[in-house]
Design a binder for these strands. Structure first.
Lengths: 349, 349
DNA sequence: CTGAAAGCGCTTACAG
DNA sequence: CTGAAAGCGCTTACAG
């Protein structure tokens, strides 16, 4: 493997000049730069990143630790995130070091990884309310970026959609269509985003002067089966008057709801409206549903490049306060929502 | 961060001695070693791995590139492998650098990763027949270990179950029970292991003097739905006399087969026997099936530690020929297999 | 058993 | 615009 020294000897220059030329320092003579670049090309020079790391004190690696969940939907989002993230990090010459967390202690895996490695930072995903990793990494002085949001007064970089607005907008659409009995099929409340969606839903319903009995706000790990069984029970009137609309935390849940409606001979959107949040995963394309799903859309893949860039900017010294992005999810109205049925205008009491 | 020099100054020793003491060199005086270790502890010394890497010429990182497949079952095995592998590698102070491959060129992602990084080696999974990655990495002189097997004359380290024996043993069990019409619901033939299982099945059936029409040997990406629809068609006699037994490439497929049998009012194992290969994934526990599944069992997780150790041994100079493991899958007979039904003794012609 | 020295391949003040 | 020098934090022949 050719080194800087090889190039410098080949050209009769000092290693320092070669280094500057290759790293685009403005002071080097244009002709010199060209010669150096040509020689580097010719010799197949690739900088030794280990040496660069030693002298710059940076490792060029960021870590990510995934919690293992016996839950396929999580796997799917995980692969989606991983795909986008490794590509975005590679574009900034950074490697992703991965570990799988099997420890109940939420920070043990982080501690272990920091002990073994010099890591420039971490990417945190799947935040829980008041996430303990935030305090740990802050106290260790390790930069990180959070995908999602876990507290109001965040003084660290994050990229998130406004999960309260996700459900609030769905409620807005449905109430405008005359719906009064709207059920929420949420994700499990361990996740910060689920808690936010519940809060957004509750506030929007309250503001619309609509009550929701507890039986119509359920929260479980997303699955088609979960959507199916709860919707079936609700539509059968087991908990009181059936909802005329469902807000689902994922398209997977919505698939179950639509199956339940079909099994009861109910039409969508004639008898029941369905809105889902759509992370745009390859396996559950909302547009392929029949009817096509009305969604609040926020492709997971879109988050990856900003996350990677924010983290690296932060490592390079950018202020956390300037690296906080909170997006509204895009509302896409398709065929699964319509006016409330005539006989469903009565609110829950 | 404390350095070797800090310790050496603290103790009035040379950095060389401190290094030797910490790295367990036999020649250092026991008392010296104790003093050094105590001081290291006290100062919270952790070796700078970047510096170690620079001087040893090793990066302490191995790469793995996962091909993205819009196929949940692959995700599940992927997470399983990742969990075991990161743990096993961490035990040998090695990091796993991960990338997701979206390029149709099978070696492009490897080339890119090698350009960006100094990697000590690769872990290859999901081999295809005559895997082109083998030639590429061999030619680049990069050590690797293969999970699975993709050619007979392998001169590289691998860890695999004998996939021909997987189906051959299943055929052996079923023919001993008097079955003559045995269908194979294989995984897609892009995978080397599927091709091997087909070969093992075909050879074992031939040896038992049993013919299998092409319609009863199908190959698709594993899913419950795939198992269900094919088994249903076969049991309905759409392709000729129904099979009395199914060999399934995964427990997921077996779940579909059992559902199909149930839907046709057939009992297991009274009317139909089912054998599946079981990678022991958390979501599809063969023992929880009803009846419990007879399987050829080879837990994916079991492969991780050997794979990690073989790769690191190979990097450290062990011969490839000494790092080749081919295991027979364990046959576990449970409730889903039984004697062929009386009216099913007629072989296919 | 221990130390002094060289070196891994870079980067970056400091001079000129 | 370029070079000589020091240094990042280790390891490891080579001497003693």
């Amino acid at each position: 493997m050719a080194t800087l020294k090889d190039i410098s000897e080949e050209l009769g220059l000092s290693p320092a000049t070669v280094s500057r030329a290759l790293n685009g320092f403005p002071e080097v003579n244009a002709k010199t730069r060209d010669k150096v670049q040509a020689a580097a090309q010719r010799l197949g020079y690739r900088p030794n990143r280990t040496a660069q790391r030693l002298v710059t004190g940076r490792s060029g690696m960021v870590g990510m630790i995934v919690k293992i969940r016996p839950d396929l939907s999580a796997d799917q989002t995980f692969v989606e995130i991983l795909t986008g993230l490794t590509a975005a990090l590679a574009a900034r010459d950074t490697d992703l070091v991965l570990a799988v967390d099997q420890d109940p202690d939420p920070v043990a895996a982080y501690r272990k990884m920091l002990e073994r490695d010099i890591l420039d930072g971490f990417i945190l995903n799947a935040p829980v309310p008041q996430d303990p990793r935030v305090d740990f990494l802050t106290q260790q002085g390790v930069p990180f970026v959070m995908h999602g949001q876990c507290r109001k007064d965040a003084d660290y970089p994050f990229y998130s959609i406004d999960n309260q607005s996700v459900t609030a907008e769905a409620v807005g659409l449905l109430t405008a269509l005359g719906h009064k009995r709207i059920a929420l099929l949420n994700g499990d409340l361990d996740h910060a985003y689920s808690a936010d969606r519940l809060a957004g839903f509750a506030a929007a319903m309250r503001q619309a002067n609509l009550r929701v009995p507890g039986a119509f706000m359920v929260a479980e790990a997303p699955s088609e089966n979960y959507g199916y069984s709860h919707a079936l029970a609700m539509l059968a009137g087991q908990h009181g008057p059936a909802p005329t609309a469902f807000i689902c935390a994922s398209t997977l849940i919505a698939a179950g709801v639509m199956q339940a409606a079909a099994d009861r001979g109910m039409s969508i959107p004639g008898d029941v409206s369905v809105v889902a949040h759509d992370d745009a995963l390859p396996l559950t394309r909302a547009i392929n549903f029949s009817p096509a799903l009305t969604v609040t859309r926020a492709p997971l893949r879109d988050a990856c490049t900003p996350l990677a860039n924010m983290l690296i900017d932060h490592i390079n010294g950018a202020e956390a306060r300037d690296l906080q992005t909170l997006l509204r999810a895009e509302m896409i109205v398709r065929g699964s929502t319509g006016p409330a049925p005539k006989d469903g205008e009565q609110p829950w009491l």
